[in-house]
């Protein structure tokens, strides 16, 4: 156990560091997306600011800060201002229970690479993201414009529907690991099946079905193509953030990308073994490698996000609802029953 002052110092340092890394990651995920989608569509993407356009996120940030922050006269002001804040706060809070790697010794103290390890860690993430729906819904309503309202309505219906599939797809993993603590879920995936297949949850029985459900539900939860109907620009201008400008718009953007990163971290922890991987080399390398594996897996997941965006068209709204309720939902329940039976049989 750490003493109180050391605990406080370590926590503050960790929080500042995690928020800083998360925001940088958000900025560079936007850059990566523009670059990769650009190449997929035979364009260059950002290329002017800095080498490979690497300083483009900075330029964007400065632009968002310096632009005029318009508040249209017909909006309901308190909620119009609060909505982007709710969205971004919820998006940044959910990163706090994610373990990024093994514990590292700093000046004689063992510091875990995680802001806090709760024994209901997974539920905290689900709870915080379910509150995040209000940011989008209220933005749509308080803007007092038809496009925003439709976007907000679509977003809340879609997120509530797919949250059920998301939750059910995770229950299988919870049955296998027997814990809500993300640290222990990662711990339970250490080792190998038959000596060479990593003992990740995705390879456990039929959990790849759960991974597929999670993937679909995660795309819908973060309002990404092919489920980006809340901001479908061909029909709704920009959906729930039509009336927003400057930093308030940027906050929605940040929330969306931070949510993407959280979802990718969660997928890594629950299905892809977190920071588990082959350890070798001197002690220092052994400490760094888990974090490296973690970041690499998150990167692959984020790249898939962008890849899908460059490949798939958008669903129609009734297709989205039918897919969620009539296909994913029964599939998730079937997966849950089969996993429970398998675990009960083995124990």
């Amino acid at each position: 156990m750490l003493s109180l002052p050391i605990f406080l110092v370590a926590s503050v340092v960790k929080i500042v560091l995690v928020i800083f890394i998360l925001l940088t990651a958000v900025a560079y995920t936007v850059w990566l997306e523009r670059k990769v989608v650009g190449h997929m569509q035979n364009r260059w993407g950002p290329s002017r600011v800095g080498p490979f356009g690497l300083l483009q996120p900075l330029a964007d940030g400065v632009k968002f800060l310096l632009k005029e922050d318009l508040t249209p006269p017909h909006v309901y002001r308190p909620l119009f201002i609060a909505a982007p804040m709710i969205a971004v706060i919820c998006a940044l809070t959910s990163i706090s229970v994610i373990p990024f790697g093994t514990a590292i010794p700093v000046a004689g103290h063992i510091i875990p690479l995680q802001i806090t390890d709760l024994n209901i860690g997974l539920l905290v993430i689900l709870g915080v993201t379910s509150i995040g729906v209000y940011g989008v819904a209220l933005a749509g309503w308080s803007s007092n414009s038809k496009y925003s309202l439709l976007g907000g309505l679509r977003a809340s219906a879609q997120m509530v529907s797919y949250e059920i599939c998301l939750g059910l797809s995770l229950v299988g993993v919870l049955i296998v690991s027997g814990s809500f603590s993300l640290q222990q879920i990662v711990e339970s995936q250490r080792g190998y099946f038959w000596g060479f297949i990593p003992k990740w949850n995705i390879f456990y029985g039929c959990q790849f079905v759960a991974f597929f459900i999670y993937l679909m539900a995660a795309y819908a939860e973060t309002n990404r193509i092919p489920f980006d109907l809340p901001e479908a620009e061909t029909e709704l201008v920009a959906g729930y953030h039509t009336e927003y400008s400057a930093m308030k718009f940027a906050m929605f953007f940040m929330a969306e990308y931070a949510n993407m990163i959280t979802v990718a971290c969660l997928a890594t922890i629950l299905f892809l073994g977190g920071g588990n991987g082959p350890l070798f080399g001197p002690p220092l390398l052994r400490l760094i490698l888990p974090t490296f594996y973690f970041v690499a897996k998150v990167f692959v997941f984020l790249f898939t996000y962008i890849w899908v965006r460059g490949t798939l068209p958008r669903f129609r709204y009734d297709q989205l609802m039918a897919f969620g309720w009539k296909f994913l939902f029964p599939l998730a329940i079937a997966n849950l029953v089969v996993t429970a039976l398998v675990v009960a049989y083995r124990s």
Partner: peptide, 23 residues
């Protein structure tokens, strides 16, 4: 556990549907 479920079910799902219907 009850606290987390309270947030997920009541604040996150039931009240979102309330707000949805009002909107």
């Amino acid at each position: 556990f009850v606290a987390a479920v309270q947030v997920i079910v009541y604040a996150g799902a039931v009240m979102v549907l309330f707000v949805f219907v009002i909107m």
